[in-house]
Amino acid sequence: MYNEPIFLKPVFKDRIWGGTKLREEFGYEIPTETTGECWGISAHAHGPSEVLNGPLKGESLNSVWDKHRELFADQEGEDFPLLVKILDAKTDLSVQVHPDDSYAREVEGEAFGKTECWYVIDCEPGAELVYGHHAGSKLQFEEMVNENRWDELLRKVAIKPGDFVYVPNGTIHAIGAGTMILETQQSSDVTYRVYDYDRRDDEGNLRELHIEKSIEVAMIPHEDADFEPVLSGNDDLRIKKLVKESYFTVYHWNLAGAVAEVENPSYLLVSVLDGEGELQVEGGTTSTFSKGDHFIVPSTIKSFGMNGDARFIVSHPSI
């Protein structure tokens, strides 16, 4: 039986809006001064994570998914379902929208559409997100886009560190400048840009927009998602269930001491936002973790102990 967590090597992505905070805040060795994304837990073909420890060391997560499904509660499906990122938005991201599963499969040949959620790790004072829009119909939406009435169309939301935002597919959205988030999402890389502030790439070209597809998949009119965080645990491990929906369940864990037994409902995707500690598996290993680590607790570990002082975002496919 596999009885230790699976630590993963992040994959980094250069982005026109990226910066250097992934190095400054987490100590990552980033490839460029405009590194926008850390794919911490990924089996997507555009950036699969590599296993750093144990008997599977050196294998990619997509290979582990294909060959060792017992580590993932024998979950069905050709593709690993989730992807966990940390994003450093030095400048505004494009205003964008993502399709649902059926549209992504039929039009893009992707296994999944993209529903996602964000935990705000840090942001500058006065930081904002684009979340939704003010158009009442597709015709009005299209008119406002074609007439560049962005201030009138886009709905701005103020944010602060510790906020959580749930972004179902079809939601018009954008992460604002000066914001660092942890994103939990379906394992998809399909993005349709609605607006990009007339930015140009390194060769001086305007970045591609996807207006027609965006209008086809956007939620019009916009409706805020309905979810309610739930608190549990004790002083040693305070657990806040941030959202449970059809694709994933996401939690914020605050570890401040020692807890003898944490149950594993299937398999857990764990990202350490801050602090350090140990994870103990009965009859197995004791593993240390620290800020910036990403690991999976496989389903072969039914429960485990933890001690330390640390904060995490934890997720699993909804069951």
Rank of each mutant, 00 (worst) to 15 (best):
Gly58Tyr: 12
Val95Leu: 08
Val130Gln: 08
Ser214Gly: 09
Ala260Phe: 11
Thr20Glu: 01
Ser94Ala: 04
His68Leu: 12
Leu71Asn: 08
Phe312Ala: 05
Glu24Asn: 14
Tyr103Val: 01
Asp224Ala: 12
Glu261Ala: 08
Lys240Cys: 10
Ala258Gly: 02
Glu108Arg: 02
Gln140Val: 03
Cys38Leu: 13
Ala43Arg: 02
Phe112Asp: 01
Ile6Asn: 06
Asp274Gly: 05
Lys67Asp: 15
Ser49Lys: 11
Gly277His: 05
Arg155Tyr: 03
Leu279Cys: 11
Leu242Ile: 09
Gly136Asp: 11
Lys21His: 13
Val120Met: 10
Glu128Gln: 10
Asp151Glu: 04
Thr91Lys: 12
Glu228Gln: 15
Tyr119Lys: 13
Ala104Met: 10
Ile319Val: 15
Ala73Phe: 10
Gly54Trp: 10
Asp293Tyr: 06
Ile296Ser: 02
Val51His: 02
Val145Leu: 09
Val84Ser: 07
Asp224Cys: 08
Ala225Arg: 06
Val297Ser: 04
Ala310His: 00
Ala177Met: 02
Val230Phe: 12
Lys13Gln: 14
Ile181Gly: 02
Lys13Ser: 11
Glu59His: 13
Gly47Arg: 06
Leu8Lys: 11
His222Gln: 09
Glu59Pro: 08
His252Ser: 10
Pro221Phe: 06
Phe141Tyr: 09
Ile211Met: 04
Asp79Pro: 04
Ala177Gln: 08
Leu231Ala: 15
Gly176Leu: 03
Ile30Ala: 05
Tyr28Asn: 08
Gly233Met: 12
His46Gln: 15
Thr300Gly: 12
Thr184Trp: 11
Leu206Tyr: 10
Val84Tyr: 05
Val165Gly: 12
Ile41Ala: 09
Gly126Arg: 07
Leu83Ile: 07
Gly257Gln: 02
Ser232Ala: 12
Phe141Ile: 09
Ser266Asp: 01
Glu25Gln: 14
Trp253Gly: 07
His133Glu: 03
Ile313Val: 09
Trp253Tyr: 07
Lys160Asn: 00
Phe289Thr: 01
Phe304Thr: 04
Leu273Thr: 04
Gly27Pro: 08
Thr285Asn: 11
His68Met: 11
Gly136Arg: 09
Leu129Tyr: 11
Pro81Arg: 00
Met180Asn: 06
Thr191Arg: 00
His222Lys: 01
Val64Cys: 11
Val297Lys: 10
Ser49Asp: 01
Leu22Asn: 00
Glu76Lys: 15
His133Asn: 01
Met1Trp: 13
Phe248Glu: 08
Ala225Cys: 01
Thr286Asp: 06
Asp66His: 14
Glu183Ser: 08
Gln185Ala: 07
Arg23Gly: 14
Tyr28Thr: 00
Gly18Cys: 09
Asp74Cys: 14
His294Val: 10
Thr32Glu: 02
Glu33Arg: 04
Ser232Val: 11
Glu50His: 06
Ser287Arg: 10
Ile239Asn: 07
Gly54Glu: 13
Pro99Tyr: 00
Leu61Ser: 12
Thr20Lys: 02
Gly19Thr: 11
Cys38Glu: 14
Leu129Gln: 06
Ala73Ser: 13
Pro125Gly: 09
Glu124Lys: 15
Glu59Leu: 14
Gly113Ala: 02
Met180Arg: 06
Leu279Phe: 06
Gly275Ala: 05
Gly305Cys: 00
His98Val: 06
Glu245His: 04
Glu108Cys: 03
